[in-house]
Structure formats: structure tokens, C-alpha cells
Design a protein around this nucleic acid. Structure first.
Lengths: 168, 168
DNA sequence: TTGAATTTTCAAAATATTCTGAAAGTTTTT
DNA sequence: AAAAACTTTCAGAATATTTTGAAAATTCAA
């Protein structure tokens, strides 16, 4: 069936792209699978669909939850846990931006603060060193602010809904 | 010497951080070393400083050049090639943003275009599939535009110089 | 030219990451 | 309280990435 082929292609490509930017392939394949699935899926279904082990599914589902990209769903009368992806792609994008900010930018800012505290600018060399390190700190701060302000404007009701018009 | 300790710490930490976001550790260590070095360095000096092999140095220097983060310098009377980092951190940040845009966002947009072309929305399922894929495309496009406009405003003379005031 | 100095390449080794699967842990049902 | 249904953990295996180092290629000086 043509649709299944396209879905598989999407899931596969998505996984490959993810590795390019430091994200686990299986994690993004599971995410893609859940994004495309009209109903929520349990661990066995994911195992079967992507042909991966139970342990692998379990680990990556937990990672995806920690990124805020999927939710656990407890269906009445069912023992198994079901998972569904956040389908509002704007929410997904915001979530990813927030996490990357937290994981990539914040540690830079911290490291730089530490270094600034530990070196006293009492020679030319030290002053120059602090200048470069400080510059990097300023740029990291700028990136941090930029992401924050984009997130804020994105989050505001008006903009969110205006942009959503294009995604229907 | 206190300064050397701080430099080493910075180089080491920078390398570790980089691995977290999908960039080769050695590559970012070499970059950090060159950023902190007042004079340009040749391959032997980098080998000795970071205790890594010639091949590794060579590969990563070429990668750094392809990212536009370092330059080759030919010193008169010297056979060896010397390398220096772009010291204007704003330029560095723009360069990184551009490259990441090219390597991370553009492939997403391409993949999505392909899929959209290959699936005809003649059933509910296909329409839903195309809706999700299309949404992702819209978000990727939004990210692309956002980065572009930040880069543009950053690049404009006024802003660049205004922000530079803070980094002196 | 020749050959010394330097850079580049790439197969194999080292290292790091991801994945498996069975055992241990937990929750629910009987 | 025992068993069944399910989830989590984690040591070892599989896979992927990075690094080495010596050989090949290139560049330059004489």
C-alpha cells in the first residue's frame, strides 16, 4: 500500500536526519511513528513495527517523555501502557527549542561563568583570554535571549493561531 | 601557570560540550585551541598540544575550514601551513548558524517536499498523513526564516557594532 | 630532475554509543 | 498470597564513530 511506503520512508529518513544532529536514531523513529499513528501504541506494537527490542523501546519512550514530545496514556480496561505523540507541531517545535536551549546553551554559560571567576586579569595574556571567553559568553547569552523571545512570541495566543492558519 | 590551566580547562570543556550536540570532540578542541592562541599554529604544534595524531589534526582542520571557522595562513619563508581561528565571535556564531541551518533544516525541507509530491490525498488516511508532514514542513520553514532574519539583522552594520560594544 | 619537507589518505585499531534479551522489579488480577 | 501481565534494568554484544600511523601524494628548493 502506497501510504505505508511513504510512512516508512518518512520514519526512516527522520531517523537518519536525527543522527546528523546528535539525536538517537531509534528515538526519532519512534517519535515519527507515533506522530504518524492515528491511535496510540503500546511497547509491543512499537517493537514489532520498528523491529527493535523491548529494552530499546522502553528507554527511548522514556527519553521522549523527558523531552515532552510524547505522553503516556492509560486506556480503561487495558493493562498495557499506550503512548501518543504531541500532534501540535508548534508545541513540538517549542519543546525541542526549549530542551536544546537547556542542554546546549545553558552549560556553555555556566562554564564561562566559572572560568571568568577563576582568572584574575593581571597580565595582558589573561586579559586577552578573558576577552575571548567573555565574547563567547555574550554570544551564548544573545542566542539564549533570541530563542527565548521567539518562544515567547510564538507562545502568545495571537501569533500561534495566526501561524496555524497556514498549517491546516 | 594559572592561565594555562584555565585554557586547558576551557579547551577540554568545550570539547566535551560539543559531543553533546553532535560535533566531533577533537574538532571543537582544535577550534578552542586556535581561538585562544595569540599566534597561528601549524599541524605539529596542534598535535603536540592536544596529543593527537597527524591524521586526526589534518582531517579536523579541513572540517573547520569547511565550516568557515578557521583560516589557513601561509607565512613567508615557512614551508608549513599555519592556521588561525576567526576571532570575531559574532562572525563565528553566524557561520555556525548558517552551517547548522544548511545541514539540519534544509534536508528536512527537501525530504518533506519529496514526500508531498509522492502521495496523492485521495483517502482520509493519506490526507491526515500529508497534514502532519506538511505541518512539519511549515515549522521547518518558520525556523529557517527565523534564523535567516536573525542572521540578516545581526549582519547589518548598525546592530553588529552596537552589540560589539558589550563584548569589549 | 631529485629528494627532502610537508600534507593527505585510508585500512585497521581504539573508543564510544546503541541495542539486545533475559532477569529482576512492579502492578494487577485471581 | 500466588500467579499472571506487564515494565524496567543492565551486562554484554553489536554497531558506529573516531583515531592512529604509516604509506602515498604533493609541494618546493636546489
Amino acid at each position: 500500500m502506497e501510504l505505508q511506503v511513504a510512512k516508512d520512508k518518512f520514519i526512516h529518513t527522520w531517523g537518519t536526519l536525527a543522527t546528523q544532529w546528535g539525536i538517537n536514531r531509534t528515538m526519532s523513529q519512534i517519535h515519527a511513528l507515533l506522530l504518524l499513528s492515528p491511535k496510540s501504541l503500546n511497547a509491543d506494537e512499537i517493537m514489532e513495527d520498528l523491529r527493535i527490542s523491548r529494552g530499546n523501546v522502553n528507554m527511548n519512550l522514556r527519553d521522549l517523555m523527558s523531552w515532552g514530545l510524547i505522553y503516556k496514556q492509560l486506556l480503561p480496561g487495558e493493562r498495557k501502557e499506550y503512548f501518543m505523540a504531541e500532534k501540535d507541531i508548534w508545541k513540538v517545535a517549542r519543546q525541542i527549542a526549549k530542551e536544546r536551549r537547556r542542554r546546549e546553551i545553558e552549560p556553555i554559560i555556566e562554564t564561562i561563568e566559572d572560568i571568568k571567576k577563576s582568572v584574575v586579569p593581571d597580565t595582558v595574556e589573561k586579559t586577552e583570554f578573558l576577552k575571548i571567553v567573555g565574547d563567547i559568553g555574550v554570544v551564548a547569552g544573545f542566542a539564549d535571549n533570541t530563542i527565548e523571545s521567539v518562544l515567547k512570541s510564538e507562545e502568545s495566543w495571537l501569533i500561534t493561531n495566526f501561524l496555524k492558519l497556514f498549517s491546516r
